[in-house]
Design a protein around this nucleic acid. Structure first.
Lengths: 200, 200
DNA sequence: GTCTATAAGATGATAGAC
DNA sequence: GTCTATCATCTTATAGAC
């Protein structure tokens, strides 16, 4: 669709659509899916409601497209961490960076953490994406933990999947709780504690 | 108000208002604050929208009253745990019971965990109550952890407040993640892991 | 205390001009 | 691709009869 520009390889790059998704994501991470409207997005983008509908016919479609982009970016990020030659501890730190960045904003939590809270109110397609994001993270974390323990750098009891679930749930929960407490430092304290648990 | 019945000591006990709060709480725990309406509540209670407004003039007032009741019940619950002669491990288990019960429903998360996710979209009075609930829990948990470590039954690094923050964030996050995964057993696995961390 | 009726505004969505 | 105008519906909330 709309392959007029010279970039033949990446035909799907509508600047306006991307901007809409940027704004929608920021609003969603602060107020939740049912807390934002096309009107809210339109105002921040600087166009009219109808123009948003031109790019994303329905709110559910906008949500799905947003989550697809989010997961695509996340996969690229995780792949980057995997490619690095760093050890388990450095990789864990790299993984935590986006969470730390979100905590520092003071007004956002994880996109999927918030959508997870509104889970039953979401369209099935959106629910699937949220599920997928959770699964992706727990799987990746479990692999990292597994490797780290084999190389005797991480220490923890039980299976890697359970430990991954604890760490991921803790990250999602911390972002929500620390934001409500208006205390980003609480998130850092949780990280310190989580690391101590893995053997420092 | 309305002290017609013989119960002179507890004048504030409107059965309909309580039922409304019951229904509102259940809906809120599944769909979130912005995911439910007076209409939704009215249908489940079996009365009309206007009748809900008679008991709770505005939605924010309903939310605040609901959270006040929730925190009151929670305080009573925590006081009950404190009064028991059980040891730290048993008390921790008692504390976990409501979380386990919520996880088993399969479609609810913690009321305040969900409201925390929608934080910026809430009225300031509601935000305060959510903050208060988080603080109450972390304070209580920190005290339990502190006592448990002094009596050499719990083992953990760092200060009790940080460990309490980790455990509480983990519980809130787990309820959200496990529900999305449609796997209540995942919550139990997290509990096992959390306990292992404290020394089994 | 509950009801019907209704207001006033927001919301997701569409039609059609430019 | 963006706009104005409009629609149907939902939402919170109020007025007033029973």
């Amino acid at each position: 669709m709309q392959a007029k520009t010279g970039k033949l390889i990446k035909p799907h790059s509508d600047a306006t659509a991307d901007l809409i998704l940027d704004v929608a994501q920021e609003l969603l991470q602060t107020r939740g899916y049912n807390g934002i409207s096309y009107q809210d997005i339109a105002e921040q983008v600087g166009i009219r409601k109808a123009s948003i509908h031109h790019h994303f016919a329905t709110k559910a479609e906008l949500g799905v497209k947003l989550l697809c982009r989010y997961r695509r970016q996340w996969h690229a990020f995780l792949a980057g961490v995997d490619e690095s030659t760093a050890g388990p501890w450095e990789k864990f730190d790299q993984y935590l960076d986006p969470f730390r960045a979100t905590a520092r904003t003071g007004d956002r939590a994880c996109l999927c953490g918030i959508l997870g809270a509104e889970f039953a109110a979401l369209a099935p397609e959106l629910q699937q994406e949220v599920q997928g994001f959770f699964r992706d993270n727990e799987t990746w974390l479990a692999a990292l933990l597994s490797h780290g323990r084999r190389s005797r750098q991480f220490r923890f009891q039980g299976d890697a999947a359970s430990e991954a679930a604890v760490i991921f749930a803790c990250l999602e929960g911390s972002l929500i709780v620390a934001r409500a407490a208006r205390n980003p430092l609480q998130f850092d304290a949780v990280i310190v504690q989580l690391k101590g648990r893995l053997g420092r």
